[in-house]
């Protein structure tokens, strides 16, 4: 695996691991309080698995491995959801060793379609989709006006952050938080938050390059 690819995935993983407590606290308020623990467990497993992929340069293959690892190690709903997202993103990036704006757009689109399908969910239900869908739309707006990968990701991150804020204003109708109904309002969604911080970690890593 190329050094760059390894570093990008490590940066995203380290951000999740570093935010274990914050994500768990958010989840404890409206769910079963394990989102941070589960996501950190998943990315610890990814970190261990990356060591075995040192010679792999195909981005699709690496993302497929990340997806499979998350599915088998996260434990909560985020496992199959993010796992499926990475597996789907692995399709347009298969055989590629570098990514351009167009391919990243296709990867985001495929990942979101996978999450919608797996979770039988859509936007406005206080889920990760409330961060990811606006992020994707903003990314594509940037792509249409010929912006660079970093510029498109900046727009995507901004939209994802606004999406996280939006989840505070609505009630949950999916997942464990839906048991709380009206009481889930006022809290930001942990899944939307983890989606946003992963995008942000990706952007910050690329900015440092």
């Amino acid at each position: 695996m190329s050094g760059e690819l390894y570093e990008v995935i490590s940066a995203v993983g380290e951000t999740i691991i570093g935010n274990r407590q914050m994500l768990t606290d958010l989840d404890a308020a409206i769910g079963d309080g394990d989102h941070g623990i589960n996501m950190a467990r998943g990315f610890e497993a990814v970190k261990a698995k990356l060591q075995t992929l040192e010679t792999e340069s195909d981005i699709g293959k690496v993302l497929k491995t990340v997806g499979m690892t998350l599915i088998s190690s996260v434990g909560g709903a985020a496992g199959p959801l993010y796992g499926t997202a990475f597996l789907r993103a692995a399709v347009p990036s298969q055989g590629k060793t570098e990514l351009d704006v167009e391919t990243i757009g296709l990867m985001l689109e495929a990942a979101i379609a996978g999450i919608k399908e797996r979770g039988k969910a859509t936007t406005g239900e206080k889920t990760m989709l409330d961060a990811l869908v606006p992020a994707y739309e903003a990314f594509q707006d940037g792509a249409k006006t010929g912006k660079s990968v970093i510029e498109c990701l900046e727009l995507a991150c901004e939209a994802a952050q606004q999406g996280v804020e939006f989840t505070k204003t609505i009630i949950a109708t999916k997942g464990r938080a839906s048991y709380l109904g009206e009481r889930s309002r006022g809290h930001q969604d942990p899944g939307a938050t983890s989606s946003y911080i992963m995008l942000k970690a990706l952007l910050e890593h690329l900015r440092r390059q």
Binding site: R41, S72, S73, V74, G75, G79, G83
Partner: peptide, 13 residues
């Protein structure tokens, strides 16, 4: 449960 004994579900299992 999970392979490490934790609470959770594992699609491969």
């Amino acid at each position: 449960g999970m392979a490490d004994g934790g609470i959770g579900t594992d699609a491969f299992q």
